[in-house]
Design a protein around this nucleic acid. Structure first.
Lengths: 257, 257
DNA sequence: TAGTGGTCTAGACCACTGG
DNA sequence: CAGTGGTCTAGACCACTAT
């Protein structure tokens, strides 16, 4: 009550947050460092513990720090990004036999794991039905759901939708899809990929996604709705990618016009 | 204390949040509706106000609801998205004289406004210098900063960087850049755009960005680092877009291989 | 066991909005 | 003005982590 009476229309929690933010930016606290405990901050700033806690919440919301129960609050380490984009579907990648995900993981010295969660005939969600040009009122698709891990850390969730009429009875309904993966099988069915359309958005995760991706608070997801078009400009495959935004960058390189 | 004693190791705040989330999903609360007040929720669930408040915070963090001071907490309205992407730089758009932003705004019946905040010779940030292939140790670029509004609501912040050596003394250092904008002037300087490279990421906003974009809590930003390449595959323009993720979708349509 | 964050209580005052 | 969210206090107990 004695020191800084003059100016601050700023709430105490914001002032504490700002002080910590400055300390991080000035390098007094660097990536991986532990912040003072909530109780210590409260005493230092003459505030209640809840107020110090609110300050830390503000930083966590921005993705600057992460709390570890029983251990402390730590400055978040910048993570090397997985990069995906225009070459995600390229033939070059398919010829190496390495999927873009495995390629990226090995580039980072990490072990890739891909879990096939389920392969089911299903009624497509409306957005999917529209893009794949199938009926949204019947079980018109095969839904393949995969989870991708790097060193056992979840990185992305992918749902792939294919026409049931085409996939029925083929390897497309099996966990092992054979050489060149699903695109190999789809090519045999007469679909040569000539164009792709990726629709990208970002949002906060649902609780379900936060759980599956083990997302710390303050980390959004990148959602990519991907459509593959064949030689007749007809869609033959639609996938929905949900990426951890703190581990993923997208790269699109394309000719103009 | 009488009803559901058996199971819940769930914290009360999460249980309240889950109840509200279900009500929203079941349509009992729809977009624009007001939630019960914090005090009412506290009483209804036999909890302290702070606990009800925590529940609302969980929903706000997910982007499901927004609090309005003095009015209440409301279920967030889904917003129509501004869509940008592979055609953002296309000649077709330049020929109409309408920028993609103005086009999108008019498509939505909104009034576009573009504020030129500053045009300055500057030392480029490291990431920019690297992509534009200029020195990061001197004032080697012109930095143009623009803010984009739709019906006076901020939608995106754009920083464009050009080589000072080229831009010096041209309309590129002026607010009005003339026919076809900066790309028109750059073409006169011998740079025909043949390829673009867009690097996309998502993250929570800095406090500065939250202020400028008037971002409600729980809304991330989409960041696009754009590089224009000319006929010699040399970069001649780099821009950094920061979009409100709840108002923006990106669309990339491109040929494979 | 001591120290950390996670949750919660029962108050209080302030700032903003609407009738 | 009454009602709302925004902030804050000073406690309390729990759950987790290290030593």
């Amino acid at each position: 009550m004695t020191a800084s009476d003059a100016s601050p229309p700023q709430p105490a929690s914001r002032r504490i947050a700002q002080a910590l933010r400055s300390a991080i930016e000035r390098g007094e606290l660097s990536a991986g460092d532990r912040l003072p405990s909530e109780r210590a901050l409260a005493e230092e700033y003459g505030a209640a513990r809840n107020t110090a806690r609110e300050a830390i919440r503000l930083l966590a919301e921005q993705g600057l720090v992460t709390a570890k129960h029983g251990r402390g609050v730590f400055v978040r380490e910048p993570q090397r990004l997985f990069r995906f984009g225009s070459d995600r579907y390229s033939l070059r990648n398919r010829e190496t036999g390495l999927t873009p995900f495995r390629l990226e993981a090995s580039r980072q010295g990490k072990t890739a794991r891909i879990d096939v969660l389920s392969i089911r005939r299903a009624v497509p969600p409306p957005g999917i039905a529209e893009r794949l040009k199938v009926s949204a009122d019947e079980e018109s698709v095969v839904h393949r759901e995969n989870h991708y891990f790097a060193d056992d850390e979840p990185v992305q969730i992918v749902s792939t939708y294919l026409r049931w009429a085409e996939a029925q009875g083929t390897a497309l309904t099996q966990p092992k899809t054979g050489p060149h993966g699903i695109y190999g099988r789809l090519e045999e069915l007469g679909h040569t990929m000539t164009r792709v359309r990726d629709e990208i958005s970002a949002r906060m995760p649902t609780p379900e996604e936060a759980r599956l991706l083990e997302l710390p608070p303050g980390v959004p997801v990148l959602e990519v709705l991907h459509t593959s078009l064949d030689q007749d400009s007809e869609p033959f495959e639609v996938s929905r990618y949900v990426h951890r935004a703190d581990l993923t960058g997208l790269l699109y390189e394309l000719p103009v016009e």
